[in-house]
Amino acid sequence: MSTTAESFDSVARLIEIGRLGDAKRLLGQAIAHEPENPRGELLAGHIALLEGNTAAAETYASAALARDPHNLATGELLYEILAQQKRWAEAERIVIELIRAHPTDADLFASYCHLMLCTLHVDKASELSKEALRLDPQNDRARLMGVLVGLVRGDASTQYQVEKLVSEDPESRWVVTLLFTSLVDQKRFEEALRVGQQLLRANPNNTALTEALVELRMQTHWIAAPARPLARWGWFGAAALWVLALVTIRLASALQSTVALWLAGAYLAYCLYTWIYPPLLRRWIRHRGIVP
């Protein structure tokens, strides 16, 4: 029969592999043997957080902290809970306290960086990611944040960093997620779609990713081909096209009114097309699926 410590280890592993029901059952037995062990509350907090019950998770984390106020893992759990609840200021207070207690922990700096990104403090996030990478250049989360900040700021070296990460650990889910983000950012929609599908196959419950794939498929569909310039240049492209059409039609009307009429008609038809096709195509793709 395994010891309680081994049971707690098993619970942690069950949580890691997403078997929350089994984890809860085993945790119940382990806590019955050692009700005073704060690890039980910590693990219960993790389970509650993964189940989306942040209130219960907070109760467990607070109880665990009361038993062991200096426990890093419990502090990190509390930070995660607060961040998930978007109680940003409280989360910031906790992560700063943790960093002061563990000033060489790159993970904590990466967490703080993520918090700053979520709250749109990009400059501070950039400084924090640099500090995280200085403390531990091989830390996964620090590297992830470094690349994310680079993508946000449009740093030229980011692409190289992503490629390096992919070559080092091509199967890691966070690297693939980063690659997907980077490809979308570069508007390499075909490649992003393939990478996204790979991600979805591993995480079929991810509805946000499913929607993102539908949007990507829309961009790569032949029906969307005439709208590619707009997809490439975005709203700047749309504005430029409008100015171009305005000037061209004005000039044409000065020369020959029929040509101007045709140009105006074509521009109007194009506008209508860009207005009408996305919802129809989206609906079609949702109905039909993404067929190769």
């Binding site: 940003w88 910031e92 709250t119 749109l120």
Partner: peptide, 21 residues
């Protein structure tokens, strides 16, 4: 480092996302 560890967020401050482009 001390400068970096100064809080940037105020208690009770509600963060609202930006209107899209």
């Amino acid at each position: 480092l001390e400068q970096l560890l100064q809080p940037s967020l105020k208690e009770g401050q509600r963060l609202v996302p930006l209107y899209s482009i």
